[in-house]
Write a protein that binds this DNA or RNA. Structure first.
Lengths: 166, 166
DNA sequence: GCTGAAATCGCCTAACG
DNA sequence: CGTTAGGCGATTTCAGC
């Protein structure tokens, strides 16, 4: 099983850094029960192995002036691989699109977008997304309110699985 | 406009910490062009004012053993406020549900879920979500692949807006 | 008010056992 | 993995703009 190449201390490190990515190494070491140098070595290894992709401040979108969030469900005309990846490349270049996931089922892609206000989103929608090549239809849903937005992964679920399979 | 209570240095700090949340304070100070002490004070102020909600390591879900991601579109029978918030509370207690957004339109909520594998997601779907009170229907879409998943916000869009309105 | 300079304290991070 | 130790960063204090 993936994730089991990591020992419990590594998983503990990941869980702590997910919860507080700015924690000092000595604090982290104390929490996971080892001394600072091996702890730092583990963190570096986890970074280089790709378990840790980066560290990011979590910034309040509304406070910063991004008042609207929108999910856009996109259907394409062609689902040929070259057309799919062309659309993905376009999404990566649109700053208002923060996430782009290819889905199974009738919808080809779901996009999570942010914008300062409704009119700037509509500018993007009509001026960019709907005009883009190969886009057949776009259904948008405004986020009325966000009830939960947890950054990472549920480590408790992982631990439960690993102890059960042990 | 929101976000304009911040001066350009504050916005620069936020952008840098969004890009690398583990940057040292002296490096941050160098990048934003002030010395370390006032830089640290600004960071603390931004944290206390709620602009910065936290710092999180970005962990690779697949590497950790979360192989599947799913979007679930949920409709409820009742949209009375007490019923909406009851559903939101349930979502907050489901570890596999990482995001829960209330939407306008025909779909009441969109949930972003992760799971170690399909069968554990289906266990959650049939054992928890579909059984939950007030849930009328759930349409799920598996994420085939993720083309873009940027943490954070597009600061360049913000800067462009602010310079244009200045 | 703000910033920057200096000084202290604590942490980071080698090298070694 | 732990301990030691030297260098650097963090953070307070204080002076200046």
């Amino acid at each position: 099983m993936a994730g089991s190449r990591l020992d419990p201390i590594d998983r503990h490190i990941l869980a702590e850094l997910q919860a507080d990515g700015r924690m000092t190494n000595v604090e982290l070491a104390k929490r996971v029960g080892i001394s600072a140098p091996p702890c730092l070595r583990r963190v570096r290894t986890l970074e280089e192995a790709g378990y840790i992709r980066g560290y990011h401040a979590d910034i309040d979108a509304r406070e910063l002036g991004f008042e609207v969030a929108v999910f856009a469900m996109v259907r394409l005309h062609s689902q040929a691989e070259s057309d799919l990846s062309a659309f993905e490349t376009r999404c990566r270049n649109w700053p208002l699109v923060r996430e782009c996931h290819m889905l199974n089922g009738e919808i080809d892609f779901i996009l999570k977008c942010v914008a300062p206000d409704l009119s700037s989103f509509q500018g993007f929608l009509t001026g960019e997304l709907l005009k883009a090549e190969n886009v057949a239809s776009v259904k948008t849903s405004l986020v009325i309110r966000c009830a939960k937005d947890e950054p990472g992964l549920p480590f408790d679920v992982l631990e439960e699985r690993l102890t059960r399979s042990a």
